[in-house]
């Protein structure tokens, strides 16, 4: 299984390459990718250098152009496809059928991967993208159980990449407008979720409030750990009770499932976190490289080592990690 690691900037790319990534995924410095955060992503020059660095060490580079353009911004997405093709990246990760169509027409030799933002959850949906755009890989949303995943891998016309570690979107990627409902900007349209510019922290007699465009997302008492107000991870009131009504801040960690994922034929494991630091990328890549190598050597006796899990735990969001939807209990 290929280890696909995130890089939000050149030092993170080097970290991923140096610590054992099989591929690194990156984005341009604009809203053409789903991690359009201030100070993040690559200029063309940085991308060129990064690709040279990775290729010299046998590591592939994928470029995410995985947001949904609108008519007014379309030339920016066209340019991104052409820049990626010109830079000699190994694959494009795209979600929008218009972007995929354009890439297929203008750069047919550049491999196309269907982004997780494309929300393909069945082999039948994947067949549509394969038929029209000859995609070479699909990244699945974090919503399928292991049994469902096995079926998709079996029937899919192209190799399947799944998320192995990182922040867990509780919603189907590409099918969540909560952020634009509150702030006007969403992952689909702008490549952001719960954008920092809309966040406000208030100290009040009742506690420390986190707000998103004025909406109270959470309130913390003294000594409570305050988290970034991603709006699905706030505490709200339902049926007279206050709590994490949608999702507790947790991280996905599928290390223990590696032998099963390998056995069912998953082609690649993706690590989430282009917004995270080069140190995060180094630590997580090192652990996953070691685990994948151990699993490949002897899947039958593979057990996640406690020191691996301790490292992953230390960089996780929230207090706990989970198998997410891979286990029915989560659903």
């Amino acid at each position: 299984m290929e280890l696909v690691c995130p890089a939000g900037n050149p030092p993170a790319l080097k970290s991923a390459v140096d610590h054992g990534a099989g591929a690194v995924y990156i984005g341009f410095r604009d809203d053409t990718n789903a991690r359009h955060f201030a100070g993040l992503n690559f200029t063309d020059r940085q991308m060129e250098e990064g690709i040279r660095y990775a290729h010299a060490r046998g590591v592939r580079v994928f470029v995410a152009i995985n947001t949904y353009p609108q008519a007014a911004g379309w030339p920016r997405w066209q340019a991104a496809v052409e820049r990626a093709a010109g830079l000699g990246v190994d694959a494009l990760i795209a979600a929008d059928v218009g972007v995929l169509d354009y890439a297929y027409e203008r750069a047919p030799d550049l491999h196309r991967h269907l982004s997780v933002q494309g929300s393909a959850t069945s082999a039948e949906a994947i067949r549509f993208y394969h038929r029209h755009f000859d995609i070479r890989r699909v990244v699945l949303p974090r919503v399928l159980s292991l049994r469902q995943l096995r079926r998709v891998v079996q029937d899919s016309p192209v190799p399947v990449e799944v998320f192995g570690f990182g922040s867990l979107c509780v919603m189907v990627e590409g099918r969540c407008l909560l952020s634009s409902y509150v702030t006007g900007q969403s992952p689909n349209t702008c490549g952001v979720c719960s954008p920092a510019a809309a966040v406000r922290w208030d100290e009040t007699p009742a506690g420390r409030d986190s707000r998103l465009n004025g909406v109270l997302i959470d309130r913390y008492g003294p000594g409570e750990h305050a988290a970034y107000p991603t709006l699905c991870k706030g505490r709200f009131e339902v049926r007279g009770q206050t709590g994490y009504a949608i999702e507790q801040p947790t991280s996905l960690n599928t290390l223990a499932l590696l032998p099963e994922l390998a056995e069912m034929g998953v082609a690649a494991i993706k690590i989430e976190g282009r917004q995270r630091s080069p140190a995060y990328v180094a630590q997580v890549t090192r652990v996953w490289r070691a685990a994948l190598d151990a699993c490949a050597r002897d899947p039958g006796s593979f057990r996640p080592r406690p020191d691996w899990q301790a490292v992953l735990q230390s960089v996780s969001e929230g207090a706990q990690t989970t198998f997410g939807a891979y286990h029915r209990s989560w659903q």
Binding site: Y68, Q70, A95, G98, T121, E124
Partner: peptide
């Protein structure tokens, strides 16, 4: 969902494309 699109296209049946298909601009609509 694109699975429905895939099936309907293969059967040659015209369809309505729901909002969740994420058709945000003319090229994807085409």
């Amino acid at each position: 969902d694109m699975a429905a699109v895939s099936i309907l296209e293969e059967r040659g049946r015209p369809f309505v494309a729901g909002a969740t298909l994420n058709l945000y601009h003319p090229r994807s609509i085409a």
